[in-house]
């Protein structure tokens, strides 16, 4: 796909999301930094017992021994149950938190506090209520951006996410989906080498979420940055990611087929030792993927099993375990 078709697709998608004009963008998002690789090495994070708790409450390990290399330009989905530490992993990558053990390197150098090479899209839009949509997006511009260049970039990003018509609105006057698109535009304004998305579509309704996923794919195609996407939505991970890691409790209680080896329903999120990577799989095929693909359905079943969810395959006479091998075959 050539650059011009990509951007016109983006504009069309954005327009379909509502509000934006269908004009195609003159150029793709300009000035994007090259995508950067991220490397986690033996990373662990333990939270000290918070003040006010009884003294006997021990420190709470959340993550341990996470080692992972994310290639430049790759979209990596981080799956896990609620409270398993996936957001913590993301926050550490962005320098919003620091690891207790191990290290994170971006492009070969350690992350700094609030690393300028990263941009974060939070689960909540976190927009400044007293600023307009455009002014909120401009918050993401790198320091020292010239006023004119900044204004042009903001306009370009608003076009990209289909919010040109809402540039002058306050966050309170737009819908949740629009607010989340504003938040995405703000993150993109930073020209990040690594885009960190923490369940960015989690609070949106199902249809808006699907549209936002397509928008994200188009944005990524137009400016191929490295994306770390935290989600609890298996389908979202399969639709968007090149690779999926599943965070959970060791010892690994899943076999290749996806059923729990011990067969009992111990909640994987009940952290006692800290979560680590229990599954890692490469999603086959190129994006955008067929949402109805049987192959993805199989992977979904496997991932759900890893999350402790029974796929209820028995209900239609299909064994819950499967013999489809891991990709690459």
């Amino acid at each position: 796909m050539s650059a011009s078709t990509t951007t016109s697709t983006v504009a069309r998608r954005a327009a379909a999301l509502g509000g934006g004009s269908a004009r195609s963008l003159a150029a793709g998002p300009s000035g994007a930094k090259a995508a950067l690789a991220v490397e986690f090495a033996g990373l662990g994070r333990t939270f000290a017992p918070s003040a006010g708790t009884v003294a006997s409450v021990a420190a709470r390990p959340v993550l341990r021994d996470v080692s992972l290399t994310v290639r430049a330009g790759e979209v990596l989905a981080i799956l896990g149950t609620s409270g398993c530490g996936k957001s913590t992993l993301l926050r550490i990558a962005g320098g919003l938190d620091s690891p207790s053990t191990g290290s994170v390197q971006i492009d070969g150098s350690p992350t700094t506090a609030f690393d300028t090479r990263c941009a974060v899209g939070f689960q909540e839009p976190r927009l400044l209520p007293w600023r307009t949509v455009a002014a909120n997006v401009s918050l993401g511009l790198p320091r020292g951006t010239a006023r004119e260049a900044g204004r042009a970039r903001v306009a370009e990003l608003l076009e990209l996410v289909g919010l040109t018509a809402f540039a002058g609105h306050r966050p309170a006057a737009i819908s949740g989906g629009m607010a989340q698109r504003t938040s995405l535009a703000r993150a993109l304004a930073r020209n990040p080498g690594v885009l960190l998305l923490d369940e960015p579509f989690g609070a949106l309704d199902a249809l808006t979420r699907l549209k936002m996923q397509d928008l994200l794919l188009d944005v990524h195609a137009a400016a191929p940055t490295t994306v770390l996407l935290v989600t609890h939505d298996v389908d979202e991970a399969l639709q968007l990611a090149d690779r999926i890691i599943l965070l959970g409790q060791e010892p690994a209680t899943t076999d290749a087929g996806g059923t729990r080896a011990d067969g009992n329903a111990r909640a994987p999120g009940a952290t006692t030792f800290g979560a680590t990577i229990v599954q890692e799989l490469t999603v086959p095929g190129n994006r955008p993927r067929d949402r109805g693909s049987a192959e993805l359905a199989e992977l979904r079943g496997r991932l759900l099993a890893g999350l402790g969810i029974d796929r209820h395959g028995d209900a239609r006479g299909v064994a819950s375990s499967t013999n489809i091998p891991h990709f690459p075959y």
Binding site: G94, L96, F114, T116, A119, V120, F122, E124, R126, L128, L139, G140, P142, R143, R186, R190
Partner: peptide
Amino acid sequence: RQLVEAGRAFGL
């Protein structure tokens, strides 16, 4: 706190 953190995350 979330707003403040977002501000910091964007370099303020």
